[in-house]
Computed example of a mutant assay.
Amino acid sequence: MNSKPYLSIENVKKIAAAAEAEALANKWAVSIAIVDDGGHLLWFQRLDGAAPISSQIAPAKAHTAAVGRRESKGYEDMINQGRVSFLSAPALQGMLEGGVPIVVQGHVVGAVGVSGVKSNEDAQIARAGIAALG
């Protein structure tokens, strides 16, 4: 029987706090979603002033990064380079930069999705959260 690491609620809270701190330090109003390796929502928060649509986009980006086992930007890049057929990929809706997988010991254990500012800034917030795991 194989075993693999997984996200505990303590891990999730640590990621969320660091992502929130990064967003607040930059005065960015965003939504932050954290999912497990199957894309199931473990944490969600919408900071004051974040656009309502960000509450739909952040979890979608996180889900895409988790089940795709790659940053959601990879799908955005493929589409922008002309591979528009990826728009019909089943179960992938957040194909925009800002979804970042959480990799521990070579295993994708979940992902962070952020929405509300420029896509590269969304990804910056997600990475800051993940960095809190050490």
Results as ranks from 00 to 15, higher is better:
residue 25 A to Q: 14
residue 25 A to Y: 07
residue 25 A to G: 15
residue 25 A to F: 07
residue 25 A to C: 09
residue 25 A to L: 14
residue 25 A to D: 15
residue 26 N to S: 06
residue 26 N to Q: 07
residue 26 N to M: 03
residue 26 N to K: 10
residue 26 N to C: 04
residue 27 K to Y: 09
residue 27 K to F: 09
residue 28 W to R: 09
residue 28 W to A: 11
residue 28 W to M: 14
residue 28 W to S: 10
residue 29 A to G: 01
residue 29 A to R: 03
residue 30 V to E: 01
residue 30 V to F: 02
residue 30 V to K: 00
residue 30 V to D: 01
residue 30 V to A: 01
residue 31 S to C: 15
residue 32 I to M: 10
residue 32 I to E: 05
residue 32 I to C: 07
residue 32 I to A: 05
residue 33 A to C: 13
residue 33 A to E: 11
residue 33 A to V: 09
residue 33 A to D: 13
residue 33 A to Q: 10
residue 33 A to W: 10
residue 34 I to T: 14
residue 34 I to G: 13
residue 34 I to M: 14
residue 34 I to Y: 10
residue 35 V to L: 11
residue 35 V to F: 11
residue 35 V to T: 08
residue 35 V to C: 11
residue 36 D to M: 05
residue 36 D to F: 10
residue 36 D to S: 10
residue 36 D to C: 12
residue 36 D to Q: 09
residue 37 D to F: 07
residue 37 D to A: 10
residue 37 D to S: 12
residue 37 D to E: 11
residue 37 D to L: 08
residue 38 G to A: 15
residue 38 G to D: 13
residue 38 G to R: 13
residue 38 G to C: 13
residue 38 G to N: 14
residue 38 G to F: 13
residue 39 G to K: 06
residue 39 G to W: 03
residue 39 G to Q: 07
residue 39 G to D: 06
residue 39 G to P: 06
residue 39 G to E: 04
residue 39 G to V: 06
residue 40 H to M: 13
residue 40 H to I: 15
residue 40 H to W: 12
residue 40 H to T: 15
residue 41 L to H: 02
residue 42 L to C: 09
residue 42 L to P: 06
residue 42 L to T: 06
residue 43 W to I: 00
residue 43 W to R: 14
residue 43 W to N: 13
residue 43 W to V: 00
residue 43 W to Q: 12
residue 44 F to R: 04
residue 44 F to N: 04
residue 44 F to T: 00
residue 45 Q to S: 09
residue 45 Q to M: 14
residue 45 Q to V: 15
residue 45 Q to N: 14
residue 46 R to P: 05
residue 47 L to F: 04
residue 47 L to H: 02
residue 47 L to D: 01
residue 47 L to Q: 02
residue 47 L to W: 01
residue 47 L to E: 01
residue 48 D to R: 04
residue 49 G to T: 03
residue 49 G to S: 06
residue 49 G to E: 01
residue 49 G to M: 06
residue 49 G to F: 06
residue 50 A to C: 04
residue 50 A to E: 03
residue 50 A to N: 03
residue 51 A to W: 05
residue 51 A to C: 08
residue 52 P to V: 11
residue 52 P to N: 06
residue 52 P to L: 10
residue 52 P to Q: 07
residue 53 I to S: 12
residue 53 I to Y: 12
residue 53 I to N: 07
residue 53 I to V: 14
residue 54 S to Y: 02
residue 54 S to V: 02
residue 54 S to K: 03
residue 54 S to T: 15
residue 54 S to L: 04
residue 54 S to A: 10
residue 55 S to T: 08
residue 55 S to E: 08
residue 55 S to V: 00
